[in-house]
């Protein structure tokens, strides 16, 4: 048990350099803009005094180390600066927008796992037709760009069938039923591609495990096939499946940027896209930071989960 704890502690410590690198990337976003970022941001009608004021506000008139320390210090206090366009504190803006992104990606990954894992098990253990059908789904899911799939779903569900709204959003707390109605298409759009990856991983991990000698010994012990698959093979395939789910959440967070724009969901992704077109750099920074931190935390949880699932990993016996 102590080795488990040490494993978790080691993995948590490993995220510190990752967070540091990430913070530098985000910090540099505004500072690497070619030319004068403040001028670019405010447009050419801004007066020199105005530019100087905003530059001072953003701390861009200090030396780079001081800038970073001030910025990181403010970050620790939860101060992300304020939006250039609306002048609202960015921490408040994120607090409104993160729940939307979390709801979208959370529901999508749950749906993707609910489709991908059972189909992957069938694909690994089933007959020829099951294998062909699931392979077809994998190729379909991987080759169709998610935003085009989303457009086609809108065409079907709001155009032809007219049963779902094409885009929009109401908070879950205000109107849970309509919130979910708005979420159906974006969640489905995001989930199909992810389900294909999870299916493929489940299938290959399980196929690999079923070829291993200990499966033969389990059969020699008189265990039923169902019991071998659910009790042993899945358990051995789980670390690989969980790892890929973790990676796919990263892909999902990226995909959410497009899907939020497509379905007009007021999430962090849409915030970033709008902010880029408006050259609203502080908002870009805040949005990128929020998504990146989410991704790093998810990776951390995934790795700890994998360690818990495979005793050899937490004992440091294999990678």
């Amino acid at each position: 048990m102590t080795s488990r704890l040490a494993f978790v502690a080691r993995r948590v410590l490993l995220t510190i350099p990752v967070l540091f690198v990430m913070s530098i990337v985000v910090f540099l976003i505004i500072r690497l803009v070619p030319g004068d970022p403040v001028r670019t941001m405010l447009g050419f009608r801004a007066t020199d005094a105005n530019v100087a004021e905003v530059r001072h506000q953003l701390g861009l008139d200090q030396d780079i180390l001081t800038q970073y320390l001030n910025w990181a210090g403010a970050l620790f206090r939860g101060d992300l600066g304020s939006d250039i366009v609306s002048h609202a504190p960015l921490s408040e803006l994120l607090a409104q927008r993160l729940p939307v992104t979390f709801e979208l990606t959370g529901l999508a990954i749950v749906l993707a796992v609910a489709i991908g894992v059972p189909l992957g098990i069938r694909a690994a253990t089933g007959g020829r037709w099951v294998k062909r059908l699931t392979e077809g789904f994998v190729v379909f899911g991987i080759s169709i760009p998610d935003f085009w799939l989303g457009i086609m779903l809108v065409l079907l569900f709001t155009g032809t069938l007219a049963i779902l709204p094409p885009s929009g959003y109401v908070p879950f707390a205000d109107d849970p039923v309509n919130n979910l109605r708005y979420m159906i298409l974006p969640v489905l759009t995001l989930a199909v591609g992810e389900a294909a990856y999870i299916l493929r991983t489940t299938r290959s991990a399980l196929t690999g495990v079923l070829d291993r000698p200990f499966i033969t010994f389990l059969r020699a012990k008189g265990l039923s096939t169902r019991r071998i698959v659910s009790g042993h093979a899945l358990r051995n395939a789980a670390p690989a499946i969980v790892t890929v789910i973790g990676i796919q959440i990263g892909v999902l967070l990226g995909g959410a940027i497009i899907i939020e724009t497509l379905f007009a969901l007021p999430g962090v992704g849409r915030l970033v896209v709008t902010a880029i077109t408006q050259r609203n750099y502080p908002a870009v920074q805040a949005g990128v930071l929020a998504i990146a931190v989410t991704f790093i935390v998810v990776s951390l949880i995934t790795d700890i989960l994998v360690g818990a699932l495979d005793p050899r990993v937490s004992d440091g016996k294999s990678t």
Binding site: R212, P213, F214, F217, L223, H232, N236
Partner: peptide, 24 residues
Amino acid sequence: LRSMRGDEVSMIFQDASASLDPTW
């Protein structure tokens, strides 16, 4: 066959390390 295996007749294989489920 299953009701016989592991009950009336048992079998052990060459590599014991590979015969055990590493996660159990």
